[in-house]
Design a protein around this nucleic acid. Structure first.
Length: 275
DNA sequence: CGCACCGCCTGGACGC
DNA sequence: TGCGTCCAGGCGGTGC
C-alpha cells in the first residue's frame, strides 16, 4: 500500500515522462467512473484536452499534476492504485483510465477502486489537501511542532501518526515501524509525548522513510504495491514489526492488536505502556 | 472542536 | 471443488 516512500518513488519515475507533455486524449475504462467523480469521461475529455502538464508533485500521499491553465489533477492511490507510462492504453482488467500524452499514455490501475483521480478547476480548493499537516520529511515536521500538535490530545500516539492533519505521509507500515524504533507503545496517549519522545519519533520517522525511499518502498507478500516500472520495493526485508511475529533486529516477540479498526504491530518487550 | 465509527471495494486466504 | 466468511486499508462523512 503506497505511503510516502512508495508515492514519491512513483512520482520520480513518471515525472520525466509527463513534464512538458500536452494532453491529447482521455479515456475511461470499466469501473473508472467512481475514480473521477463528479466529472464524467466527456467532461474530462473536454477539460483536459490540449493542456500541458507543467509540474508533478507529491503532497503527503496525494499526487498533483499541475496543468498549464492553472487547473490540476489530484490523485490518491489509496491501497491498490498504480500509475505507469506505456506506449498504449493497457487492456488489463483493472486499468481504470488512460491519460493520453504526446509521447506516452499514463495508465491508472486500481483493483479495489478506492483510488481517486480528481480534476480540480483553476482557483478552487481541494478538500483533501486543506487539512494536511506538514510533510513527514519536511523541516516543519520537528519535535517542537510535534509536541505542540499532540498537546491536549487524548487519542493514542499511533492514531495521531496516522492522522494526516498532524503529519502527512505516514500510513500503517511506517507508523508501526517508527513507534518500534522510538520504543513507544502505540497506545501511549498523545498528550504524554514529551520533547525527548517527540525527538525520537521525528528522527526515526525521517530515517525510516528515507531508507524506505532508497529501497523504492515496501512490497508485501501479496505483491499489491508495484512501482511505475512494475518493480516491487525492497524495504520489506528491513521491516521490524509490521506483519512480523519476531523483530528483525533481536528476535523480540511481536504482538498485534486493533486500534481504530486497524491492525497494529508492536514489541511489548521494547515498547512499554507508560514508559 | 476532537474523536470514534462506518462505508467504500475486491481478491486472496481460510475452513468446511 | 465450491461455497461462505473474513481480512486488508486511507479517507470522507456522520454523529456524539
Amino acid at each position: 500500500m503506497p505511503e510516502l516512500p512508495e508515492v514519491e518513488t512513483i512520482v520520480r519515475q513518471i515525472r520525466p515522462g509527463v513534464l512538458g507533455q500536452r494532453i491529447v486524449g482521455f479515456s475511461l475504462r470499466a469501473g473508472g467512473e467512481s475514480l473521477v467523480k463528479p466529472y464524467s469521461e466527456e467532461d474530462l475529455k473536454r477539460l483536459l484536452f490540449d493542456k500541458t502538464i507543467i509540474s508533478l508533485s507529491r503532497i503527503g500521499k496525494f499526487i498533483r499534476f499541475q496543468l498549464s491553465d492553472n487547473s490540476a489533477i489530484i490523485s490518491h492511490l489509496r491501497m491498490t492504485g498504480r500509475l505507469y507510462l506505456a506506449e498504449r492504453i493497457d487492456d488489463h482488467k483493472h486499468n481504470r483510465l488512460g491519460l493520453f500524452l504526446e509521447d506516452a499514455v499514463l495508465n491508472f490501475l486500481d483493483t479495489r477502486r478506492f483510488a481517486t483521480f480528481h480534476y480540480l478547476p483553476s482557483k478552487s480548493l481541494y478538500k483533501g489537501l486543506l487539512n494536511l499537516g506538514p510533510d513527514a520529511l519536511s523541516d516543519e515536521f520537528n519535535s517542537d511542532y510535534l509536541v505542540k500538535a499532540l498537546a491536549n490530545r487524548t487519542k493514542s500516539i499511533y492514531a495521531s501518526l496516522m492522522d494526516q492533519s498532524i503529519v502527512a505521509g505516514l500510513g500503517n507500515i511506517y507508523a508501526n515501524e517508527t513507534l518500534y524504533a522510538a520504543r513507544i507503545h502505540p497506545l501511549q496517549p498523545s498528550r504524554g509525548i514529551d520533547e525527548t519522545k517527540a525527538k525520537k519519533i521525528v528522527s526515526h520517522a525521517k530515517r525510516i522513510l528515507n531508507e524506505a525511499l532508497e529501497f523504492r518502498g515496501t512490497t508485501l507478500i501479496d505483491r499489491t504495491y508495484l512501482d511505475a516500472e512494475g518493480e516491487g520495493g525492497n524495504y520489506f526485508n528491513r521491516l521490524n514489526v509490521y506483519g512480523k511475529s519476531k523483530t528483525l533486529d533481536g528476535n523480540n516477540p511481536v504482538e498485534k492488536t486493533k486500534i481504530g479498526g486497524r491492525t497494529v504491530y508492536f514489541s511489548p518487550k521494547k515498547q512499554m505502556l507508560g514508559d
